[in-house]
């Protein structure tokens, strides 16, 4: 929930009792933030803190973000302006950020962050079409906001494992290849896991990198590797694309 792990103690109390050994727990307690958990589960907590889970809602970064918030990107991207402000303060980071933005959207000229009455901030972009005209985040397309948040999550956050829900959301199909290219590049330094149902994104992913989650005969979710299927390989050798097989439910044959 909001990027944190919550275990509802109203169910399965027997299972967690041996871990917490009679420690009094209220319902809906956030176990990993309890003092007893800090004592016994600190290696696990430490590992979890290195995981970034992102499910961007492009409507939220379009609003202003309170100045007092954390500067790590929130799982829904709501504090994107704050994170961009952090990036802007370092000249080298800002230069790299703009190059990555231009790789995806060549018309981006510059990015700035503005304060509102010293209490909140929002980000703006200028485009090459009108360099003197500042576009506030509220006027940007959902896809542009999503790409901005994606670049931050991939390149400017310190998480060692990044999980991204539908990174291609609201993004034009012609940009899928570059989206995958960026994820591949970022994956050289951290583990990236992205979920998708988008065949256009899958078209550009290497078969070896695909894990397909599907149901077995009893309805349980199973994870399979299509790259290990000889039938899938035969389809590909016969001028089928990975995306064709995905659309026709043939990646699990």
């Amino acid at each position: 929930m909001n990027g944190k792990v919550r275990i509802d103690s109203s169910e399965g109390e027997d299972e967690i009792e041996h871990i917490f050994d009679g420690y009094p727990m209220q319902k809906k307690t956030l176990l990993l933030e309890s003092p007893i958990a800090q004592l016994y589960l600190s290696p696990i907590i430490s590992s979890l803190s290195e995981i970034g889970i992102f499910d961007f809602d492009p409507k939220l970064p379009k609003k202003t973000a309170p100045i007092t918030g954390v500067t790590e990107l929130a799982s829904d991207g709501a504090n994107l302006a704050l994170v961009l402000n952090r990036i802007s303060t370092d000249g080298e980071s800002k230069r790299a950020f703009l190059n990555l933005m231009r790789y995806m959207l060549p018309f981006v000229h510059r990015m700035d962050v503005s304060k509102v009455a010293d209490k909140s901030m929002y980000f703006t972009l200028r485009e090459t079409y009108a360099r003197n005209f500042e576009l506030p985040a509220s006027l940007l397309s959902d896809g542009t906001v999503n790409i901005t948040a994606l670049i931050v999550a991939l390149y400017f956050e310190k998480n060692k494992l990044v999980v991204i829900e539908e990174p291609e959301r609201n993004v034009h199909p012609a940009l899928m290849s570059k989206t995958v290219e960026m994820m591949k590049e970022a994956a050289q330094k951290k583990q990236i896991i992205a979920t998708t149902h988008n065949p256009e994104l899958i078209r550009h992913v290497d078969l070896e990198d695909i894990l397909l989650v599907c149901r077995d005969e009893s309805g349980r979710s199973v994870v399979i590797r299509p790259a290990q299927s000889e039938d899938v390989q035969t389809f590909l050798e016969n001028d089928f694309q990975i995306s064709d097989l995905f659309v026709d439910n043939l990646l699990e044959v």
């Binding site: 080298e92 230069r95 790299a96 190059n99 990555l100 231009r102 790789y103 390149y155 290219e181 960026m182 590049e185 330094k189």
Partner: peptide
């Protein structure tokens, strides 16, 4: 080394 990204370098 100062370039964290090959994409960034190629744009440069």
């Amino acid at each position: 080394r100062r370039f964290q990204s090959r994409i960034d370098f190629m744009q440069e």
